[in-house]
Design a protein around this nucleic acid. Sequence first.
DNA 1: TGTAATTTTGTAACGATTACAGATTTTGGT
DNA 2: ACCAAAATCTGTAATCGTTACAAAATTACA
Lengths: 133, 133
Amino acid sequence: MVMTQATQHLVKHGIRPSMQRIAIMKYLMEHRTHPTVDTIYSDLHHSMPTLSRTTVYNTLQVLAQNHAVTTLSIDGHATRYDGITQPHAHFMCRHCGRIIDLPLENLPAMPRNGLKVEQVEINFTGRCDLCNQ
Amino acid sequence: MVMTQATQHLVKHGIRPSMQRIAIMKYLMEHRTHPTVDTIYSDLHHSMPTLSRTTVYNTLQVLAQNHAVTTLSIDGHATRYDGITQPHAHFMCRHCGRIIDLPLENLPAMPRNGLKVEQVEINFTGRCDLCNQ
DNA sequence: TGTAATTTTGTAACGATTACAGATTTTGGT
DNA sequence: ACCAAAATCTGTAATCGTTACAAAATTACA
């Protein structure tokens, strides 16, 4: 039996691969747009008419808790999700809303002693190259 | 006529110093707790019974737009505000909710060419020294 | 196959934030 | 000082993202 990449990814993170979870994980692996719950729901709803918005919320919570996806609070309005879990920074264009992945060459200085860091989020905001012309 | 620090700060950023604006700016300068709108409102409401929650929202928006304060989306639930505008990072304890200022020794690698960065937000999340024992 | 556990679904509720319109205050010219 | 215009503040209602919850559907496994 062949496992899709999405399914493998779920299993690797100890998440049971249901239809809905696979679909959402697959979506995040194929769309590098850092979508919101609503975008994911709207896009998947076409091919999965019975999918519930609540399921998208629940699933993403499960995925994030098990580190299968990353959450992004760069938006201010809605949480965004990232299928890539390797540490990297983000740039969001105030004008067009696009979110761009940025490599993290040198991680910022470690916090002071005693703090146990579990997550780092580095967000740049401004105007992107396309809007800047 | 003597100007308070808060008033000076407002004027310096081109913001007309009304009673409410001064009170909110003063609050943020004196409380280094990165409070939410609700905390600010509740605390100020005692000494300013006529203050409206909407005014706190509006005022903080004006202050942020004019770079007199900084916004923090580290919380996930409510926007938090910081009276210190010099660039620095933040650590939030998942356990007690405390937010700690962190000096930014070396700014993270600049984003790729063409992106015009207007704001940087660096958020660490984890367990603080007090909760870690 | 039957039952318990898990997952999904839809609706209702919640909390943060914004829209809006009227009231109040401030400003600037006379 | 007086008045009109502009700016600010206020309170309520609406909006929007998210969570609570309970019932329905699916899956696991004895």
